[in-house]
């Protein structure tokens, strides 16, 4: 498998999310639930126990009318690269359950190997990792609607956004059958990207100049969440509003975003 991958240039799949376009409709969250067999409970009012691989946060500039402004921020797993693949969660997992792929830049999770120590959850500052506090219970008949490409998770293990990795596998299979070695941009798109009615989410290979994300990430208004921590995430956000960009990281009173040197 390694040898086959050597033929192609390493990829760094990532996202660019235009926060000025996001309406907070939540279609990305719903699409993610359906695509990835995400379990849910009858009562989902306690959000700290809800599994939402893609979660839309509501940000506010905390100003009074007429200056009040809000912003919706979709937050998938950031698939942090850290320093040479030393992402916060990958380095701490004691059983090598989670891995940073140098071929795709995707942080994976082997559910059947996870024994539920939750150290990775403690390590993730984005709260992108979720624990299965219960076994999944599907409404009657719904188990027939589950995606056969994504394994359902059992109680006691951690799960998170995989950038719909099964779609990448499917696209690779298709390319192989057609005698190609590479996957085209449109052949591998995440469910949330395709579901977004405002087209706020763009997905692709950040290393590939032919992919839209390559250019979008270089927007002067592009930023990443908590860059100063050195997590080196692969999800970029774009917003023309300064307060939104400033909400992406922590700053001391005298500091201005954009003037802080980050490690990556």
């Amino acid at each position: 498998m390694k040898k086959a991958a050597d033929h192609t240039k390493p990829k760094r799949y990532g996202m660019v999310i235009d926060l000025d376009k996001c309406t907070g409709c939540g279609a990305c969250m719903v699409a993610c639930f359906a695509e990835n067999n995400i379990p849910f409970k009858k009562d989902e009012s306690e959000k700290l126990l809800s599994i939402t691989w893609m979660r839309v946060y509501k940000l506010s500039n905390k100003k009074k009318y007429p200056d009040t402004d809000i912003c919706y921020l979709p937050r998938p797993c950031m698939h942090c690269e850290g320093h040479e693949g030393h992402s916060p969660c990958v380095s701490v997992c004691p059983a090598t359950v989670t891995d940073y792929s140098t071929e795709t830049g995707i942080v994976s999770q082997i559910y059947t190997r996870c024994f539920g120590c939750r150290y990775c959850m403690a390590a993730c500052p984005y709260h992108a990792r979720y624990f299965n506090w219960w076994d999944p219970v599907w409404p009657k008949g719904m188990e027939k609607m589950l995606s056969p490409d994504v394994s359902v998770r059992m109680r006691g293990v951690v799960e998170k956004c995989s950038f719909c990795y099964h779609r990448y596998q499917r696209a690779k299979d298709k390319a192989y059958v057609e005698g190609r070695t590479d996957v085209e941009e449109e052949e591998y798109q995440t469910a949330c990207t395709q579901a977004c009615p405002a087209r706020a989410i763009t997905f692709g290979d950040l290393n590939n100049p032919k992919h839209k994300v390559y250019e979008l990430k270089q927007d002067p208004h592009a930023f990443r969440l908590l860059e100063r921590l050195g997590t080196n995430p692969k999800v970029y956000y774009v917003s023309s509003r300064e307060w939104v960009r400033k909400s992406g990281d922590n700053y001391l009173k005298h500091e201005e975003p954009g003037h802080i040197a980050t490690k990556h």
Binding site: S91, P94, A95, T96, V157
Partner: peptide, 21 residues
Amino acid sequence: IGQPLRGWFIFWHANVHSMLT
């Protein structure tokens, strides 16, 4: 741990770079 029966995975699949290991 969430899956006590898999507790031994920490030895079997040890990631020596993890403090918990």
